[in-house]
């Protein structure tokens, strides 16, 4: 059994966006804080820190999940994808490009989480109905857009045409 004392910092190694990275964490360090402060990956945003707002959503071992409800120490050896893992250089993913075309963001605070959820969601369900998209989006809070442009962008990338 692995045991870590409350004030002990342990090494955590994980694969982030295809590269092995490591940092240090005491047990109470949230994965979201570990990504930002240890790995300097500031694309993952932190909103409510209790699993409600969805801003910190990342892919962990292939599943879209709240990174604020995971402690870094739990994630040794995990495979993580963050918003930095989407675009290659200046080439956006089709989903990101659709967000751009449809003005699916305004302040952008919620966007990283929504992109990560939607990327995982479309990999499982490439041709969702609008109702399914809205159900998936119910796990995110956006205070700018009213969601309409986000739904349009996702439906566009899933069903083509624009």
């Amino acid at each position: 059994m692995i045991r870590v004392k409350p004030d002990e910092r342990v090494r955590v190694s994980l694969v982030v966006n295809g590269r092995w990275l490591f940092g240090h964490a005491e047990p109470r360090m949230l994965l979201s804080d570990f990504l930002r402060h240890e790995l300097k990956l500031f694309g993952t945003h932190v909103g409510c820190e209790h699993g409600v707002c969805g801003a910190c959503t990342v892919e962990i071992d292939g599943r879209a999940t709240r990174s604020c409800l995971r402690y870094a120490v739990q994630c040794d050896g995990a495979t993580i994808r963050t918003v930095e893992g989407l675009a290659v250089g200046d080439t956006l993913t089709p989903l990101q490009a659709a967000f751009n075309r449809h003005h699916a963001l305004q302040c952008g605070f919620c966007t990283a989480g929504i992109l990560m959820s939607t990327t995982a969601f479309l990999a499982e369900n490439p041709k969702p109905t609008e109702a399914e998209v809205r159900d998936m989006l119910s796990g995110h809070i956006c205070r700018c857009t009213g969601y309409e442009q986000i739904v349009s962008a996702i439906m566009d990338v899933a069903h083509g045409g624009g």
Binding site: I2, R3, E26, P27
Partner: peptide, 13 residues
Amino acid sequence: MKPVAFGYARAET
């Protein structure tokens, strides 16, 4: 918020 400091144990069985 951040939690109060806690110890961590990972059971294998």
